[in-house]
Design a binder for these strands. Structure first.
Lengths: 338, 338
DNA sequence: TTGTAGGCGTTATCAG
DNA sequence: CTGATAACGCCTACAA
């Protein structure tokens, strides 16, 4: 059977109340009694029942996060984020409650279970949508959360990376390397960062007087496979692009496969660039030029901000926009010789 | 405020009991009443308080897992395992409670919090130690768990990969490719799989009449960095090995770095092989020869078994030993020409 | 078919 | 300094 306060109380010959207070470290317990109680508690391996404690105190010391339940593969973006969030949560004395759900209704009901079910003190929301129902929900019930990503609605707490700027830099970089036909493999429109990143792409083209061509912009769904399909279409065009930017690294890696498969060489015949800088970007062949989002570190900052919000501390800035860092590797080719 | 059964009861003009039964789908509630109650519950967005429910029912529908809290980097082995476990847990209607802790005392107390604190119905134990205090604890309190890895004690439920066989195959493979000086970068002795894998290495050497040399066996700690250090030592020997096997992929990748740094070429001048087949093994340059542990799939199976144990169903086999699969890639060189 | 009452283990209030 | 007592929200005999 489980050791409860009652067990200890009986063993020590005092009331449950006294045991509770002794263990909680209240000052109004006789030093003798306290020591005896603590000794017994340790001997019996007492462990407070957290469900009971939560029921009373409304604090769970748990952070919730819902990640997409994909068919078979683990998404490195989310895994890095989970690692960063988990590490920092633990640093603050919090555990992490993870639920893998299909996007859509299921996901939202997982939010409800966690939040309204009182299982977590706060939520981390990743991969924000344009009109994000999860954020709408959390705002409606006034539950603490921080999002990785912003939307138009200016009021919610977020940390984000300036995708427009990142994309602009990517275009500038490719132009500098001599490219004029730069294609884009786009992320799904419903994602908040899509408009941001695509905007940066367009502004990049304009800034260098390059035309925006409909046929150079293809829709992907963030998976490696969709990147490959998109690149195949691009390469089959009458006038194929000489450079391909993908809205995330996974699609960029898929695009590299398509280039290979056509017997062309990445970085020489076709330049490829991505966005995120997942670990594999470094080790891919050739290594991938990309825009770095320090995902692991962002996980830390998300938790730091969330912890303050949960504890109702002052947070000076709840809208953090990080400047991206262009990471040039071999997949975008070699510098122009002049 | 939170919507409780009481809120609904008042709204519907019935007792809490009736609401509870109506929502739980009991048969003994008037159809009229039930419909009215359900309608109100939905309108008010009722969500059962899970702490209260757990307190009563002792079921949490949560699986616990403690992962090492390393300084800065995410360990791909654990991340893959988390992905597999999380996915399958969700498939069975369970959430995953993650706690990142330093190994040792902290880790054990996280187990206690989860288990004795009643937060989880079962635990997944990864990276089993020789005399594993976590397993000792779980057995002592009769709490359901499944381990990824076995120990001498035959009675606990586990899924494992036959490391001895894997290592043997690795040695055989390298011998076939013409190597006679095969070194080993060993994992920490306290890990259960170390004896297993090292045993396979020794038996491999014996089988091919190769001497076991003390100086060819170096201790690592599973990190990339330790693999690099170990390989540097090996390569600085008067008679350096021509092939290096590491007990995990991360150390093997570190060893590759050391080879590079010395101006040698992996797969040509020195053969390298690892164990695990983490995603990066495929994309590394050159790709890494290794022994495949299907970590993601093992995560699935761990959960499947655990779910049956938690629900006290019959499990025909609670000790599963999987046969490993040798994955030959470029890091071990090219086949001997004859 | 519905309601009353008790308890899960904890913490907080209020007397003694 | 200590102990009753109530309450958190839910479930379930048992009674009506």
């Amino acid at each position: 059977m489980h050791v409860t306060l009652k067990t200890i109380a009986e063993e020590a010959g005092v009331s449950i109340t006294t045991v509770s207070r002794a263990l909680a470290g209240y000052g109004d317990v006789n030093e003798q009694t306290r020591r005896r109680i603590i000794e017994i508690a340790e001997r019996l391996g007492y462990q407070p029942n957290l469900a009971a404690r939560h029921l009373r105190s409304k604090r769970t010391y748990t952070i919730g996060m819902v990640i997409p339940r994909t068919a078979h593969y683990s998404d490195p973006f989310f895994m890095e984020l989970v690692a960063g969030v988990g590490k920092q949560a633990s640093e603050h004395g919090y555990d992490l409650l993870l639920s893998a759900q299909m996007q859509g209704e299921e996901e939202l009901s997982a939010y409800r279970r966690m939040v309204a079910g009182g299982r977590v003190d706060g939520m981390i929301v990743a991969r924000v949508l344009w009109q994000d129902p999860r954020i709408a929900y959390l705002r409606q019930v006034y539950h603490p959360f921080v999002a990785f990503g912003r939307t138009e609605d200016p009021a919610h707490p977020y940390i984000d990376v300036d995708g427009a700027e990142g994309m602009y830099q990517l275009v500038a970089h490719l132009v500098e390397y001599g490219h004029e036909r730069i294609a884009l493999i786009q992320s799904p429109r419903e994602l908040a960062f899509t408009a941001d990143r695509c905007g940066g792409y367009r502004r990049g083209l304009e800034a260098f007087d390059l035309p925006y061509r409909e046929e150079y912009v293809i829709q992907g769904n963030l998976t490696r496979h969709s990147g490959r399909l998109a690149a195949e279409k691009l390469l089959a065009l009458p006038t194929p692009p000489s450079a391909i930017i993908a809205c995330n690294d996974l699609m960029a890696l898929g695009a590299s496969e398509a280039v290979h498969a056509r017997g062309l060489r990445v970085g020489r015949d076709v330049a490829i660039a991505g966005f995120d800088d997942i670990p594999e970007a470094t080790t891919a062949t050739p290594p991938l030029t990309t825009v770095r989002q320090p995902i692991y570190g962002i996980g830390h900052r998300l938790v730091d901000m969330l912890v303050r919000l949960m504890q109702h501390e002052e947070v000076d800035n709840t809208q953090v926009l990080l400047q991206p860092e262009l990471v040039i590797r071999a997949s975008s080719g070699t510098p122009p010789t002049r």
